[in-house]
């Protein structure tokens, strides 16, 4: 059973007399332990979707199940397994850090004897132990963000909904949040993180979804998406020697390779590279000059990738590394979205 199952979710707002659609027909499935990066420009419907999952907004149509429980019919049950961190939040005045956490722990019906331990644990996890007796309003923005994350953790939720957890933070605080999320990932929690900043998502998300104008444009495994979007995926080949030769060989494999990029300069293939062009390269230097890095746009089946390597090795190219680099999400994002805002 998937941990999160959203089907045809729709949310309409009545704005005076006209109806605005914030989210239209959104479907998504996530397994336990998935870290889902919810990417989209501001106003695309990320916050609306997260709020609907958090039982704070009622969807107009469609269903959303968390751990098999309908969020609309049983909001009370959902609240005990979901932790929600809003994009904008305030803190109470005149309250200390430990009191703040104790308050939320009590609100989650954690018994009095267990609370001090839990408060200490989440403080340690979020690295706020030294601030235990400080007043909440005296914390820095990054600390408040971590405190809010700590508050989200007091009832040990299975699912965490984090709306822009790193927005408005300086680089250091941003990295701290990122490290914290990695720790949560290790704890086996299913996390949905929304952001409009891409690089911070790449590092720890195993699935992403791109939303624009209330519609999920693509969703799924990071690499699969990159492939879907470009119709190819990148393989990076480092060679110790014979870079030009390797290039010539790769250019010849037109059935599976669409693009070949060499560190200095790039040669893009036309639909069918001319035989003359190939011969020219091969003639120039049959034994290649030194090492280099080649990036190829591979369009063939994934389990046939080894053939490329085998061909290169057989031709005497000294291959040092052959791997798929981390996808460049920004590239994906730009290709997919049209720059419209809902």
């Amino acid at each position: 059973m998937p941990m999160i199952e959203i089907q045809h979710l729709r949310k309409e707002y009545r704005d005076q007399s006209n109806i605005k659609v914030a989210v239209k027909d959104l479907s998504l499935e996530l397994e336990q332990g998935d870290i889902f990066g919810f990417i989209g420009p501001n106003g695309a419907g990320k916050t609306t979707t997260i709020k609907m999952l958090a039982t704070l907004l009622i969807p107009t149509a469609g269903t959303a199940l968390v751990n098999g429980i309908d969020v609309v019919r049983y909001p009370e049950q959902i609240r005990s397994i979901v932790g929600y961190m809003p994009d904008f939040f305030g803190v109470y005045d005149d309250i200390k850090v430990w009191e703040y956490l104790d308050f939320f722990a009590a609100a989650y019906r954690i018994t009095k004897d267990k609370r001090p331990q839990i408060v200490d644990d989440v403080l340690a996890l979020t690295d706020l132990t030294v601030k235990k007796d400080s007043y909440v309003e005296s914390l820095s923005r990054g600390m408040k963000q971590r405190l809010c994350l700590a508050k989200t953790l007091v009832h040990d939720p299975k699912v965490m909904l984090l709306d822009e957890p790193a927005s408005g933070l300086d680089p250091r605080a941003r990295i701290e949040i990122r490290e914290l999320l990695k720790e949560l990932q290790a704890m086996g929690k299913t996390i949905i993180v929304s952001s409009h900043i891409l690089p911070e998502m790449e590092e720890f998300c195993n699935k992403i979804g791109i939303i624009e104008s209330g519609e999920m444009i693509v969703a799924g495994d990071v690499n699969t998406i990159a492939r879907q979007v470009r119709g190819q995926h990148t393989i990076e080949i480092r060679v110790v020697d014979g870079v030009e030769r390797a290039e010539a060989i790769l250019l010849g494999m037109t059935d599976v390779i669409r693009e070949v990029k060499v560190t200095n300069g790039m040669r893009q293939l036309e639909e069918t590279p001319t035989e003359a062009a190939r011969a020219q390269i091969l003639q120039r230097n049959t034994h290649g000059v030194g090492g280099g890095v080649l990036q190829i746009g591979y369009v063939g089946p994934v389990d046939e990738e080894y053939r490329v390597l085998a061909t290169l090795v057989q031709a005497g190219v000294k291959v040092r590394a052959f791997h798929t680099p981390e996808t460049d999400l920004e590239d994906v994002f730009l290709r997919v979205t049209k720059g419209q805002v809902a």
């Binding site: 958090a54 704070l56 609240r79 809003p86 904008f88 939040f89 305030g90 609100a107 989650y108």
Partner: peptide
């Protein structure tokens, strides 16, 4: 106004 109500609503209280 302080944007604390959503977090309070989300609890089991």
């Amino acid at each position: 106004e302080q944007q604390t109500l959503d977090m309070l609503t989300m609890t089991r209280m």
